[in-house]
Design a protein around this nucleic acid. Structure first.
Lengths: 230, 230
DNA sequence: GACAAATTAGACAAGACTGTCCAAAAATAT
DNA sequence: ATATTTTTGGACAGTCTTGTCTAATTTGTC
């Protein structure tokens, strides 16, 4: 009855380590083979555990899958908010700090193992088990978006940005940061961190071209405005 | 040996109609259930055809899957270039025409059935069958990107845009247009065409804020800027 | 109408997977 | 050291799926 909820106790070493071992093997195998393609023997083998132990811990394939999904979801969400906490609220060099933030975001949330797993699992099973991923939709992207939007709004209020709709800006920021990641991600390819840096730099540059502060209070008229007057 | 290559003859009505019927049922079922989860009986039933006919036409499950993938890929690529041909090369109202173009792109290539199928199939099976999707990578996104980049470069040369790197601009344009589509697409949800229009409008507005011609020699403030209410 | 090709339904063997049961072995706690 | 819990390996029935085969039926062609 509480076999599944036993995850609240920390996975110590010798004891319930098998539990997490199974969970992680499950994530890998479900992700690699899809739900239907994965089989318990594979997962047991990859977790270095007997098949029976898998059944002892998680009951059946469906429950194991559900456990895997909620685990990965929680990890991903937690990490997203960790990174979000490093947002440059008081930037000295906005562009540079935004690029660093974008890199952290992609490295820790979008391009890491968990991120890849979650993406694949949602894509392949989301339509069949919408309730399983409901919490991801609301607690994951939903909250990240609005949190990020709030940060951008604050930057705008402080005069660092010029934007009319922080929510749209936040989503577009994420979209731009993701630009180059889509295709390789589909094939499970890893991007070197230099390439990742590049992409983030391009994304932020474009973002700031669109939403960067038009002018500061004590700045002289920009060259563009001079051209307009002429 | 040439069972698969028989697709070169046109699927007439009474004759080889079953062929395409199977192919389309295959696309639906493979997409819905994943490769491992799909079974021939399902596909046969959904194609209103006996199981044996499926085997007669396509040999086995693997070959059927390959046929489905190449078919969908070709359809998607073809449609992409159709839409690309409607790019506003000589725009009178650049913003408006770019929005319309973006809407065409999303409706016909990204959000339609084939687009959804291809996305799911690549995501779930791309890692396992990289060679199957190799042609998609090179002939699909690869060529669309560079074609789009060429269009943007021409617009820049004609003074309608101000960009330093057309390739990056093209990818970012696509990323922006995709902004809102990602999440619903993962769950197979359809976006109303009004919502689609909105998203495209936001994307293009941002794109032009970043890459729009700084200003014309003889132009007053654009209506678009005015609509951007306080 | 007759002939050839395609389609159908059904049975079939072979293999894979799930989930259960059980008794021996190992690990853990007292 | 002993008692308790967990893990293990293997066997097992039941189910599902693939791919083949066959004979009968339908379809399209001449």
């Amino acid at each position: 009855m509480d076999a599944i909820n036993a995850t609240d106790r920390l996975p110590t070493r010798g004891h319930a380590a098998k539990r997490v071992s199974i969970l992680e093997a499950g994530a890998r195998v479900f992700c690699r083979e899809g739900y239907a393609g994965a089989n318990i023997d594979m997962i047991a083998a990859e977790a270095s555990v007997s098949r029976q132990t898998v059944y002892n811990h998680y009951g059946d394939k469906d429950k194991l899958f559900a456990a895997v999904v909620t685990e990965i979801t929680q990890r991903c969400n937690a990490r997203s908010f960790e990174v979000l906490a490093t947002f440059p609220d008081h930037p000295e060099n906005l562009e540079k700090e935004l690029v660093a933030f974008a890199v952290r975001l992609t490295q820790n949330c979008l391009c890491d193992e968990d991120g890849k797993y979650l993406r694949k699992l949602i894509q392949s099973e989301g339509e069949r088990h919408p309730q399983l991923f409901a919490s991801w939709r609301t607690d994951g992207p939903g909250k990240v978006w609005s949190a990020l939007a709030a940060r951008f709004a604050r930057l705008a209020y402080a005069g660092h940005l010029d934007l009319d709709n922080p929510d749209i800006a936040a989503r577009q920021f994420l979209a731009l940061v993701n630009t180059e990641l889509q295709i390789p991600a589909l094939f499970g390819e890893k991007l070197g961190s230099n390439r990742l840096q590049e992409t983030a730099a391009c994304a932020v540059k474009t973002f700031l071209r669109a939403y960067g502060r038009k002018r500061s209070e004590n700045e002289e008229i920009s060259s563009g405005d001079r051209a307009l007057r002429a």
